[in-house]
Nucleic acid binder design. Structure first.
Lengths: 249, 249
DNA sequence: CGTCATATTGACTTTAGTCAATAGAAGTGG
DNA sequence: CCACTTCTATTGACTAAAGTCAATATGACG
């Protein structure tokens, strides 16, 4: 483990994530870049952590997509959020335990695992890190709140459109969007579990989105020909993502 | 402001909240009890903070119930969470701004307003406080996740039952439950906005809960004759509330 | 080539929403 | 305390959204 390309990628992503709201000191940056990480790959659908567990490491997504979800007694699954490259799988897992939900790979995924103890001691030496992590927790919570509004008050059609908008903006921030398109490996079952819908209804709503020319979904690629139109349909306002102001062109 | 009975009540609640997971040092306890607070009353429905605002004070509920909510373009309202006595209205509002949602009184309510700057400087002197606040943020997020699962995967009947269970447990922790009953001032519109339902359907689902003898709701009081049955109906598991182990009897 | 997961379709059921009317309660001004 | 307004709760009739069940494609993969 700790192959050097992985480590470099992990460091870059981690710094980018933590500096999203405010720059870090050189000392902290360099401490973070020598942080001990264990890189681990997961297959699509593979469980990363179970509900009720108390992991000793935080996960940080390097590649792929990771779900947090709950299973209900009746067998239903509710996806609670999607973690993309540059996200912690669970920004709060080191302050409150055990996990109240499970975590699994939603696509083939690569994670950096960072021991809580390492984060802990870094936080003690660098109070800025605390603030950066709190902000990350807060951002995560903000996304969760928007999901609540979506589940509660948007139609199936809007929910899917909204999710696509969110993924688009978040992936774009991570540099994963090219030609208004991004790789899309989720199944209709995944979409249903995220939006609280049956797969049949997901299928029909996707068809409606296609017919309305809001999305083109083929070859595991989601293409958005007219983002403004999709946002309009979804009643999507990216403010809740707290994206930094547009970077220099 | 700062009438002494208010201040005493505020201090007690605040310490109880912050010591939920771990005791605080005597120094921090005493610093907290001299924290400058401004006590303010709100009428039912009164706006406490608007979406897009960047408040300079955190709110801490002393009495009543407070909603966080979003308004959607089509006019719908989604309640994102309910803050009860002993809760911060918005545990994250000092790390990420502006507010991505609005805050209003769901019943006549009394809040202590604590300047962010005061919290900030206390946190610098007492790292324990940071940890306590992070845990509170994490707990708040955990509750949000359960709401997500509820909105996505529970029926109207179950959603209402689940909300009643949650309020019961949380209020019980705050000492607000007597004879298996608690004061209940929410309207059916409020319940609908919390559960993503129309008021008509809330009304009918409540009738079903009554018919099944799971709740008795009259005179602004909610009585739960058989908690085990209500929990069963709601598929409610209080684990997500991270309640402390049962206290000595 | 055969198997398993995923996507699609049709027919039908159920849940929940909408619209509209009425009844009850609470609050206000006189 | 009364008349009046307004909010809240309830009911009925109807519509629409979404779920269920079952069958059939389609695609990925060993």
């Amino acid at each position: 483990m700790n192959h050097s390309p992985d480590r470099l990628a992990a460091t870059g992503l981690l710094l980018r994530k933590l500096e999203r709201f405010a720059p870090l000191s050189a000392a902290l940056r360099s401490a973070l870049s020598t942080l001990a990480v264990r890189v681990q790959d997961y297959a699509r659908g593979q469980l990363i952590a179970s509900q009720g567990e108390s992991p000793e490491e935080s996960g940080f997504v390097l590649e792929g997509i990771v779900f947090r979800f709950k299973l209900l007694p009746d067998g239903g699954r509710q996806i609670l959020g999607m973690q993309l490259p540059g996200d912690f799988t669970d920004p709060h897992d080191f302050v409150i335990r055990p996990l109240d939900h499970a975590i699994a790979a939603g696509s083939p995924a690569r994670l950096a695992r960072v021991p809580h103890a390492a984060l802990q001691s870094l936080m003690e030496q660098h109070p800025q890190l605390i603030r950066a992590l709190m902000r990350d927790m807060a951002l995560d919570a903000a996304i969760g709140r928007e999901w609540l509004a979506t589940l509660g008050r948007r139609s199936a059609y809007q929910q899917l459109a909204h999710l696509f908008c969110e993924l688009y903006f978040r992936l774009e921030w991570g540099g994963k969007v090219r030609d208004d398109s991004f790789e899309f490996l989720l199944t209709q079952t995944d979409l249903g579990d995220a939006c609280g819908l049956s797969t049949v209804h997901v299928n029909r709503s996707l068809q409606a989105l296609r017919k309305d020319k809001l999305i083109v979904l083929e070859d595991h690629t989601l293409h958005v020909p007219d983002m403004a139109a999709l946002m309009e349909a979804a009643a999507f306002d990216p403010a809740y993502l707290y994206l930094p102001k547009i970077e220099a062109a």
